Computed example of a mutant assay.
Amino acid sequence: MRTRLTELLGIEFPLVAFSHCRDVVAAVTNAGGFGVLGAVAYSPARLDRELSWIDEQVRGRPYGVDVLLPGRVDAAAADPAARLGEAIPDAHRDFVAHLMRKYDVGRPDIWPPDGGAWAPPTTAAGRAADEAGRRVTAAGAMGLVDVALKHPVRLIASALGPPPPEMVDRARSAGVPVAALVGTVEHARRQVAAGADVVVAQGTEAGGHTGEISTMVLVPQVVDAVAPVPVLAAGGVASGRQMAAAIALGAEGVWCGSVWLTTEEAETPPVVRDKLLAATSLDTVRSRCRTGKPARQLKSAWTEEWDEATESPGPLPMPLQMLLAEPALARVVRAAEAGGEGARDLANYFVGQVVGQMNQVRPAREVVYAIVSEYVEAVARLSRLSG
């Protein structure tokens, strides 16, 4: 399987796997694909440790890193003197506390939990929350990029917004291509103008932050708009037939994320994994309730309460909603694993509409080979039909 993507990255299959789990990244890379580690969850020091581990596992095989760079964030995140926890209104804290009581998540007398946006800003936990919130700014992302470029990465990906000039300059100085995720043709043109070497056209079917245009419609439009820049298709790709469709639309490869959540290597909490395995493609929703930006995720009581309850104050902008939601949802998962039914109702995670195909747990290597095998069969079928 040779495309411009395989030649650019030095990989066997034009299959990119996005994951927040280092084990998935290493497994896909070692199977002939290209693993990309989502870095936003890590401090620079933690990212350095994760990448060092990947280096040992892949032994020179190529992999990449993804950073989150939204075009707009809450003004407090761009102010180094601001304390992000203090920017979260009491009404939003009270609403989360209300949900914890309503769904019986832990003992009321020990809520709110320590850490995250709930911690006093002068404490270590409060300072850590500030640092985590600023990773979605250009300055914060560049700290992660600088760490990544100390390792033999073969791609730096920018999600949500155009890569800043310093990111493109540093990556190119290191001989590392820059990829950018887009949800519209205009976004694609903007990313190429900013210096992107690869464009990932991500349809609304995808998990995580997405736009409103479907992959089938978006990919050929982006291919035509940014030619000759190579385009990857993302959103609704978890099988070889879907991969073949993406290539037929003009893509040079595919970018997959959701399908790895139910692999053996994934760090998906068992309660969330079980909900993913049981879900259909109708069980996802685009909502701002987890990050502050529209992100496709599994429907749950958490999404319903934030989006539909009359007492909901509505989501905050990024990164404040992240700082509010993530500590609460981490506690929800722990309570669900301990047997809490209400907590299980709240638990969710980012996932695309292909969740309806994710009905078994397999090693990541096996998933790679199954996608490639089905792709070959699909191409052979098309060849027969064309005579």
Rank of each mutant, 00 (worst) to 15 (best):
R2A: 09
T6F: 04
P14K: 13
F18M: 02
S19F: 04
V25I: 07
A26P: 02
A26Q: 01
A27L: 14
V28P: 04
N30I: 00
A31P: 08
G32C: 02
G32K: 11
V40W: 05
A41R: 12
S43E: 04
A45K: 15
R49L: 12
S52Q: 12
R59Y: 12
R61I: 05
Y63Q: 06
G64Y: 01
V67I: 15
G71E: 14
A77R: 01
A77H: 02
R83Y: 02
G85N: 10
A87N: 03
D90C: 07
V96F: 09
Y103F: 15
G106L: 06
W111G: 01
W111K: 07
P112K: 05
G116H: 05
G126K: 13
R127T: 07
G143N: 14
A148C: 05
A157V: 09
L160G: 02
G161N: 08
E166H: 10
S173I: 03
A174N: 11
G175D: 01
A180C: 12
A180H: 15
L181H: 10
T184L: 14
V185T: 13
H187V: 03
R189D: 05
R189Y: 01
Q191E: 14
V198F: 08
V199Y: 12
V199W: 12
V200H: 04
A201C: 03
E205Y: 10
G207Q: 08
G208N: 03
S214E: 06
M216H: 04
M216E: 03
V217F: 04
V217Y: 04
P220I: 01
D224A: 14
A233R: 05
A233P: 06
M243E: 04
A244P: 06
A245K: 00
A245R: 01
A246Q: 09
A248W: 03
L249S: 07
E252T: 07
W255F: 15
T262G: 02
E265S: 13
A266F: 07
P270E: 12
V271R: 06
V272A: 06
V272Q: 09
R273S: 13
L277P: 05
T280G: 15
L282H: 15
T284L: 11
C289V: 13
G292M: 06
P294N: 12
P294V: 15
A295Q: 00
R296P: 08
R296V: 05
L298C: 07
K299F: 08
E305L: 04
W306S: 00
A309F: 13
E311D: 13
P313G: 00
P315W: 08
P315E: 02
P317E: 12
P319W: 10
P319D: 09
A328F: 13
L329A: 04
L329W: 10
A330Y: 11
R331H: 10
R331N: 10
A335R: 03
A335G: 05
E341R: 14
R344G: 02
L346K: 03
V351F: 00
V351Y: 00
G352R: 04
Q353M: 09
V354C: 02
V355M: 07
R381P: 00
S383N: 07
